[in-house]
Write a protein that binds this DNA or RNA. Structure first.
Length: 673
DNA sequence: TTACCTCGAGCTCA
DNA sequence: CTCGAGGTAA
């Protein structure tokens, strides 16, 4: 057989066995027989490098390391699902779906386990794996193609036929528990650190810059849906779509089922719950999706999650531990937060030793006392929470918790407004804790972006009284930094140059950096845009401030309080004197105000602009971009394959425009900065 | 909130 | 080798 044909045959055969092993879980060959084929192909390709192709199974061993991961903008955002924690919430979901579709009687759902891994997106062009990306914040993720290529359960090219020319498959990367155990014993043998749970091990493996390391980690993939498909028609139901994905070579959960109505959903939940410990991988619940894809489209999305699907989560794992004490954290605004210090306990896959208690009321309600035995869980997957106290184990004489009446850091009086739950230290800038937080905020990435000024450094700078206000940062010299820990020549000069660089900023960033209460990034931008320069903002009275879009009485009062404080004005003067500058934003001209406050909704794929670019342009012109169509929407910008938003716009009589019309609208108001 | 990866640089010991 | 900072993910 000619070499070329032999290579192709070997590839096909190896892929087939990969598929049988990793996807169907039904191998035909022993590992040794498989290795034999694999080595033959490797040898062939080594002898004939021109035969090597990116979709050859030998390429799964991992390409050369990358300097960094590139950003990937998702064609359609990778949203998360709403959660249901009990039967009542599932019942409500089923009722909402029925009402939304005006259907009485049982609905058909597709139900599947909810894998505990990381969400990824795989893009195939003409059947070839083109790109793999992490979910990121839903809009933008990271390009981890080289790493995902090494997963044998991910097809490098699609099988079967009838696949779209452009296909984006979404699914979960995870480790099976048995593979995780094996990986950890290998790690220990090599003298490296073991991972604490399969999810983190999978996440860590995927974030390796060197794909050759990823290749040695037994990661798996399960597909659960698609983000995009162009060039062919798809099945009418989600369950048929999953079957189709299986035909194309993707692993899909064998536990998936079609179920009918609420009873079917709850029955499935109970069934999978019973199987949970027997499954080879970790799951944290089950997912229900309305099966009919057209009906899904009809229901559409509410804010950040689809209306047609929900995750029914298993109850969070709980553990017993002891409350060692309650410490008080002082925030940037002086807010005092009680934090439970716990005897470390492993729960929900991590070791928990702290849990925020939010405020005094919360501690009272749970009646926590030092020395109590408490039930701890991780609520909503992440935040540790004290569920309750085991009263019977309470040590005798344990005193009630009281919020301190003076700040634990600066001893200033603690005040609490009658209508608020939070107690605050009244020390303001005299409180070192508040100063530290204010400085960290000032230096943070979204504010002045002073790289290298982190927690430990701020701690040292404030404690040694080298820095009291943000303006002091700009007076720092090599000498002042000389005696600090971990701050030798190189670090010091890097810090100074980062501080120097931060002097060039924007008005919006600067306003945000000031840390005015209730003024976050968005409000800071609104203020910068409205007033155009800082002096006008500082001189504004409440009435002026209320004219800014989205500024209400509370925000207006906070700003007035800030600018009425001479010390704040002084620091601002010092900052300007030190050379902090920004280009004043021109107040939008009257022609531009055509778009001011107008609400745009983007739907479908625009011919030339990305969603991000369109959003930026609209915002720069004073408009707003919203994710869902309502009566308040002024324009719906529709692109190719616009879906339910377009229908909704028509039914509400909202003006629908295309990209060209959008550009026309915006062109009268060119972005100012 | 915790766990993980990665980087640059400081510290430590030969 | 260890630390601090900065990033990501759930």
């Amino acid at each position: 057989m000619p070499t070329r044909e032999r290579a192709l045959a070997l590839r096909a055969e190896i892929e087939e066995h990969n598929h049988r092993y990793y996807v169907l879980d039904a191998p035909l060959l022993s590992d040794a027989e498989y290795d034999c084929l694999f080595r033959e192909l490797q040898a062939l390709e080594a002898a004939h490098p021109e035969l090597v192709s990116a979709d050859s199974p030998t390429q799964r061993v991992g390409a050369a390391p990358l300097p960094e991961f590139a950003a990937v903008v998702h064609a359609t955002p990778m949203l998360s699902l709403n959660n249901a924690f009990d039967d009542a919430e599932v019942t409500a979901f089923d009722r909402r779906v029925g009402e939304g579709l005006a259907i009485h009687g049982d609905l058909d759902y597709s139900a599947e386990p909810k894998f505990d891994g990381l969400a990824v997106s795989l893009t195939y062009q003409n059947g070839i794996l083109l790109r793999g990306a992490t979910r990121g914040d839903g809009a933008t993720g990271e390009d981890v193609t080289a790493n995902l290529r090494t997963l044998r359960s991910i097809p490098l090219h699609l099988q079967g036929s009838g696949w779209p020319t452009l296909l984006e498959v979404r699914g979960e990367v995870l480790l099976w528990r048995s593979d995780f155990e094996r990986l950890n014993s290998q790690q220990r043998e090599k003298g490296e650190k073991a991972f604490v749970n399969p999810r983190n091990a999978a996440a860590g493996s995927l974030r390796q810059l060197d794909p050759r390391i990823t290749a040695t980690r037994p990661l798996r993939f399960f597909a659960y849906g698609i983000g995009l498909a162009a060039g062919t028609s798809l099945p009418a139901t989600h369950s048929a779509l999953l079957d189709r994905l299986a035909e194309w070579g993707f692993p899909v959960a064998p536990e998936r089922r079609r179920v009918k109505g609420l009873a079917g959903l709850l029955g499935y939940y109970a069934h999978i719950g019973g199987q949970r410990a027997l499954l080879p991988y970790d799951i944290d619940g089950v997912v229900y999706k309305l099966d009919d894809l057209a009906a899904q489209e009809h229901l559409g999305f509410a804010s950040r999650a689809p209306r047609f699907a929900i995750a029914h989560k298993f109850p969070a794992e709980e553990a017993l531990t002891e409350l060692l004490g309650i410490s008080i954290q002082v925030g940037r605004t002086g807010a005092l937060t009680p934090v439970a210090r716990l005897v470390p306990v492993f729960v929900g896959g991590v070791t928990v030793s702290n849990a925020t208690l939010h405020n005094e009321e919360e501690v009272r309600r749970k009646d926590l006392r030092i020395g109590d035995t408490v039930v701890v869980r991780r609520a909503g997957d992440v935040i540790p929470e004290i569920v309750r106290v085991q009263w019977e184990k309470r040590p005798t004489g344990a005193p009630e918790f009281n919020m301190p009446t003076s700040c634990p850091v600066c001893a200033s009086k603690v005040v609490r407004n009658t209508d608020e739950a939070v107690a605050r230290c009244s020390g303001g800038i005299y409180c070192p804790a508040q100063r530290k937080q204010a400085l960290l905020h000032f230096a943070s990435r979204r504010a002045m972006d002073i790289e290298g000024l982190g927690e430990k450094l701020v701690e040292q700078l404030v404690d040694s009284d080298i820095v009291r206000t943000p303006a002091d940062l700009y007076r720092l010299g090599l000498l002042a930094l000389a005696n600090l820990e971990r701050m030798a020549d190189k670090s010091a000069s890097n810090l100074l140059s980062a501080i120097e660089q931060s002097k060039q900023t924007t008005l919006a960033r600067f306003i945000y950096a000031l840390g005015i209460r209730n003024v976050g990034e968005t409000t800071a931008r609104d203020l910068a845009r409205h007033f155009g320069n800082l002096d006008r903002l500082l001189a504004a009275d409440e009435a002026d401030l209320l004219r800014v879009p989205d500024v209400g009485p509370i925000v207006a009062r906070s700003i007035r309080q800030f600018s009425g404080e001479p010390h704040n004005l002084e620091v601002i003067e010092q900052l300007r004197a030190a050379g902090v500058v920004w280009r004043d934003v021109e107040v939008l001209a009257s022609t531009a105000s055509n778009n001011t406050g107008k609400v745009f909704v983007l739907t479908g794929a625009l011919p030339t602009l990305t969603r991000e670019a369109a959003t930026q342009m609209i915002e720069a012109a004073g408009g707003k971009v919203s994710s869902s169509v309502s009566k308040k929407t002024d324009f719906v910008v529709a692109g190719a394959e616009a879906g339910s938003k377009l229908e909704k716009a028509r039914s509400l009589g909202v003006t629908v425009i295309d990209e060209a019309q959008l550009l026309g609208l915006l062109s009268v108001a060119q972005p100012v900065q």
